[in-house]
Design a protein around this nucleic acid. Sequence first.
DNA 1: ACCTGAACACCGTTCAAGT
DNA 2: ACCTGAACACCGTTCAAGT
Lengths: 242, 242
Amino acid sequence: MSTDPAPARRRPTHRKGRATLTRASVGQAALDFLGRHGPAELTMRALATELGVSPRALYNYVDDRRDLITVAAEIFESAWQPPPLDPAPDRWRDTLRAYCRDLRAHYRRHPGMTTLALTENITTARHPTMLRNVDALIGFFTEIDGTGLPPREAYLACMESIRQVVGFVEFQDRPHDRPPPHLDPAELRQSPPPWLREGIEDLPHLRRAAEHPHPELPDSVFEFTLDVLVEGIAAAAGRPTS
Amino acid sequence: MSTDPAPARRRPTHRKGRATLTRASVGQAALDFLGRHGPAELTMRALATELGVSPRALYNYVDDRRDLITVAAEIFESAWQPPPLDPAPDRWRDTLRAYCRDLRAHYRRHPGMTTLALTENITTARHPTMLRNVDALIGFFTEIDGTGLPPREAYLACMESIRQVVGFVEFQDRPHDRPPPHLDPAELRQSPPPWLREGIEDLPHLRRAAEHPHPELPDSVFEFTLDVLVEGIAAAAGRPTS
DNA sequence: ACCTGAACACCGTTCAAGT
DNA sequence: ACCTGAACACCGTTCAAGT
């Protein structure tokens, strides 16, 4: 065979001055939208307006709003490139921590993506890239620290790690990054937060904490989460920290 | 003084055959509703219909839908009575595990409550009962295992424990208890779940897992989470498991 | 093939009256 | 004081045409 067959005729890339829509471009637009607005603001009408089309036009590429969010979630998952993991005894803790920090940053870049996946009941880890990442993380846990975890525990440790990161972003970072409008953002940078500082006269430990408030960055709280995760997994590997 | 003053005239307890509404009863009705329906179905109109009033009537007791959910969340928090904690070296692990199991069961009884609090940006731990529980849990961590955790770490361990339970319910239990309609519930009781069993030809660890599927109850996955949490906190206490 | 515009059945919320 | 019913501005989605 001399040359490749001529590529199939491409569909036009533009129409009426704007780029033609595709399933992927609509999903990408939705993901971008979530980087700029809250999840409730992502409506079919708002996205259509932003794309310069009528709401009905979106339905030529996605089935419905749930499908739109599914596409956005797949693009979101495929867009993360994890840092390297190293199961060597003196390396696995640090590389796992770096891995989780990077995953947290990725989720944080698109606040609302997780929330929407939750409210729309969308199962994640659907994109091949994400499957590859999951597989590599399981493999990492089967090898950590020399002996490694047995298959079931390696699988559970993988899911546990991801869940910890996602849970932290949802329950710790999101209220911090997008506080309810009635709260003073400066108050949120203190520990304990304002709602744990009222009506605590008879509660000795919260009272003591409130008397000595100190700045607490989410980053340092996350390090504590990583302490618990890493050492908890180390214990599961039958290797208590030395 | 002879007798107590006559109690203030009570408002009538019934009106037109049905119980009169109050802020608390409306919130309780919303919480009950969440035990029976999904979070998206909790609309002002649906709740009003269930209570036998017009939607407008609800606005005499709550400011708006967000306020309604706030009331429901406060009732939800006040309705939990935690099992006892014991910081003794040979007891703290087991009592902490029982505590987390019970908290998980409480959240699970009202699926959607957490999701709604998230989507409506409602800060939790507002009810005095919940504050008391938080205070007691911090106190527990300051005493575990003899030496206990320092105040900051005890506070962080408390928040970490609660976040782990809530995260587990949201990300593990909820998809399991209320699967998306297109998934076969029987498939969900297997490990790995169906979406980790397709397109994995080149992924050795997922492939091996898929070749040996086994029933995996959420309860046993939760025990792994507790393993990691408890031993991780034990390590933070400077006391690796023996 | 892909779009628009009108329409339908919802939703939260408010207004103007009722009793 | 507390309610109803109508109304408004939204939303997701669909229908009937346009080009």
